[in-house]
């Protein structure tokens, strides 16, 4: 069969364009089309969430184990309630785990650091829909400075 040179070039051009798009979406965007796999929901109540945003990561020892899904304010006691989407492939965490809002670097983005508690016989794990009780709020720079100034004037 005779191959038309023009058609061959155009076909190569289209293939090249599609390949570029594929590389962009797979390699650069780091997106897996399957998503992050199955997940379950946890809740956490904080006093102050600082600069936390939806899609901020939840990390255990630096490994991303989930993402912040949404942030709401409880209308009863005006405390922020953070909904976490936890990846099921990392399993469930013990009930005694604590969550704190940390900052990556000095000025980086904020994320939730999860500290898994001890796994023991009589300690249950955080099932889907459970609330993390032990939480530490974000550090707000102004409050910190205020405390330092207060402790300096005390002396």
């Amino acid at each position: 069969m005779k191959v038309n040179k023009l058609e061959l070039t155009v076909g190569g051009f289209v293939l090249l364009g599609l390949a570029a798009l594929l590389v962009l979406s797979l390699k650069i965007a780091d997106s897996q089309f399957s998503g992050d796999g199955p997940s379950y929901t946890l809740y956490a109540r904080f006093d102050n969430i600082g600069g936390l945003k939806p899609r901020s990561p939840v990390k255990v020892g630096g490994v991303v184990v989930g993402r912040v899904e949404k942030i709401e304010l409880d209308s009863d006691d005006f405390a922020p309630v953070v909904t976490l989407k936890m990846f099921e492939r990392y399993g469930y965490f013990p009930e005694t785990s604590s969550a704190s809002i940390l900052t990556a670097g000095l000025l980086g983005e904020q994320y939730i650091g999860l500290n898994p508690g001890f796994i023991m016989e009589d300690i249950e794990s955080l099932e889907a829909g459970a609330t993390i009780e032990d939480t530490k709020s974000a550090l707000v720079l102004e409050e910190l400075i205020g405390k330092v100034l207060f402790s300096l004037t005390e002396k």
């Binding site: 051009f13 289209v14 364009g17 570029a20 798009l21 590389v23 962009l24 650069i28």
Partner: peptide, 16 residues
């Protein structure tokens, strides 16, 4: 219409 999105994808990739 077909060529431009393909060209833009290649532009992005080469630019990155």
């Amino acid at each position: 219409v077909i060529a431009m999105p393909l060209l833009a994808s290649m532009f992005n990739l080469v630019g990155i």
